[in-house]
Simulated scan of single mutants.
Amino acid sequence: MLYRTCAIIIRSMDYGEGNKIVTLLTEGGGKAGVIIRGAKKARSRHGSLAQPFTYGEFVYFKGNSGGLGTLNHGEIMESHHLLRERLELAAYASYAAELTDRSLQEDESDPFLYAQLKACFEALQADKDPQIVSHVYEMKILQRAGYDPQLDNCVSCDSEDAPFMLSVGSGGVLCRRCAHRDPYAIRLSDGTLKVLRLFRRMDLRRLGSIALKPETKEEVKKAMRRLLDAHLGLQLKSRNFLDQLDKYEI
Rank of each mutant, 00 (worst) to 15 (best):
G74V: 04
E75G: 05
E75D: 09
I76R: 04
I76N: 02
I76Y: 02
M77E: 07
M77K: 15
E78I: 02
H80Q: 00
L82Y: 06
L82Q: 10
L83N: 09
R84E: 04
E85A: 14
E85N: 12
E88S: 10
A90S: 11
A90F: 14
A91P: 03
A93C: 09
A96G: 14
A97D: 00
A97N: 02
L99D: 02
T100L: 02
R102K: 15
R102H: 10
L104C: 09
L104V: 14
Q105D: 15
Q105N: 13
E108K: 12
S109A: 15
D110H: 15
F112Y: 14
L113V: 07
Y114W: 04
A115S: 15
A115Q: 15
K118E: 12
K118A: 12
K118L: 15
C120H: 06
E122N: 09
E122T: 09
A123W: 02
D129M: 02
P130K: 05
P130D: 06
I132H: 04
V133N: 03
H135N: 00
V136Y: 00
Y137W: 02
L142H: 07
Q143N: 13
R144C: 05
R144M: 12
Y147P: 11
D148P: 01
D148L: 15
D148W: 09
P149E: 10
P149L: 12
Q150L: 13
V155W: 09
V155E: 08
V155M: 11
S156M: 06
S159M: 04
S159P: 00
S159F: 01
E160H: 13
A162N: 04
P163H: 13
P163Y: 13
F164E: 07
M165K: 13
V168D: 05
V168F: 07
V168W: 04
G169V: 07
S170H: 15
S170E: 14
G171R: 11
G172Q: 08
L174K: 08
R176G: 01
R177T: 08
C178S: 03
H180W: 13
R181F: 09
